[in-house]
């Protein structure tokens, strides 16, 4: 008998089977009603809220022996949060992990969508702090649910209106609200609006888990995802004057890095896998 790949005393992927079933039922409902927030009985995870407990529970519910897992935090595979979550699942499932976007079957993410296009069969799992896009204007959960049910979304444009009134343009850069499948307005989690177009008609399945608020929602593959905007102030993604200091990319999402105490700074790709791959291709050509 071969020794179990899962650490002794733990169930496969940490959660018990009934909990995983419960989450999968919530996921099925979420997929069936794109953008709709499904409540679920969120469990305590062995880390604090805000560290991705929602995303982890979704990952735990869908991960199987044949999966290959990638975890990113702000686009990077090598940050503390990403490394710990990756090792958590390696330890408690024994599945393969990877840093290559195209090799992964499951990608758990915080705050980014990978630069490389996703393909059919992949599942992207978002960690979500506040799932309710109407929360900023309507504190009552009873009322926001009613607003969703009645498609009472006039208030969503108020935020964008206020941006333009105040700054002359839509200044919302993260968690930019979208309408899914022409019906539910959804908070795409705090990804930069740069990533919003990647959600539209993506071949991959996108799942969203909010641990503290105990909500799950989803975008099935090939679903229309439209960013809210005005006719005379259309939706636009961020652009940079600079290019990546490492790979020279001019089309990826860049992070600003301060280099020294004199305030010198550089821009580098936020997606480490994308940057590394481009660098390897350049070396190969050279």
């Amino acid at each position: 008998m071969t020794s179990s790949p899962v650490r002794a005393g733990y169930n496969f992927a940490y959660l018990d089977e009934q909990t995983k079933r419960m989450i999968r039922r919530a996921l099925l409902k979420a997929v069936a009603i794109p953008g709709y927030q499904v409540p679920f009985g969120g469990r305590e995870m062995p880390m604090p809220y805000g560290w991705g407990t929602g995303g982890m529970q979704v990952t735990a519910a869908v991960i199987g022996h044949d999966d290959c897992l990638k975890v990113i935090d702000q686009g990077a595979d090598d940050t503390t949060n990403a490394v710990s979550i990756r090792s958590f699942f390696r330890d408690l499932t024994g599945v393969d992990t990877t840093e290559e976007t195209e090799a992964a079957t499951l990608i758990q993410t915080r705050h980014r969508i990978p630069e490389k296009p996703l393909h059919e069969g992949q599942i992207l799992i978002y960690q979500v702090p506040i799932p309710e896009p109407l929360r900023f204007i309507e504190p009552s959960e009873v009322e926001t649910r009613k607003m969703h049910a009645l498609e009472d979304y006039g208030v969503m444009h108020i935020k964008l209106y206020e941006d333009i009134a105040q700054f002359g343009h839509i200044a919302t850069a993260y968690a930019y609200p979208v309408q899914v499948n022409g019906r539910y307005v959804m908070d795409p989690s705090p990804i930069p609006k740069f990533d919003n177009p990647k959600m539209d008609n993506s071949p991959a399945l996108q799942l969203f888990g909010a641990g503290r608020e105990k909500r799950i929602y989803a975008i099935p593959p090939y679903t229309e995802v439209r960013s809210l905007d005005f006719e005379d102030h259309p939706f636009e993604v961020q652009r940079w004057e600079a290019s990546c200091a490492i790979c020279g990319s001019e089309s990826s999402f860049l992070d600003e890095v301060v280099m020294d105490d004199q305030g010198n700074h550089e821009f580098i790709c936020s997606d480490t896998d994308y940057c590394r791959t481009r660098l390897a291709q350049q070396e190969e050509r050279a």
């Binding site: 204007i137 009472d152 006039g154 444009h157 009134a165 006719e231």
Partner: peptide, 20 residues
Amino acid sequence: GVSGGANIGERLMATGERHY
């Protein structure tokens, strides 16, 4: 919590006005 202009515009936005 939102400006006077947004207060007036809300109903219009709710009924589909999308021109700032």
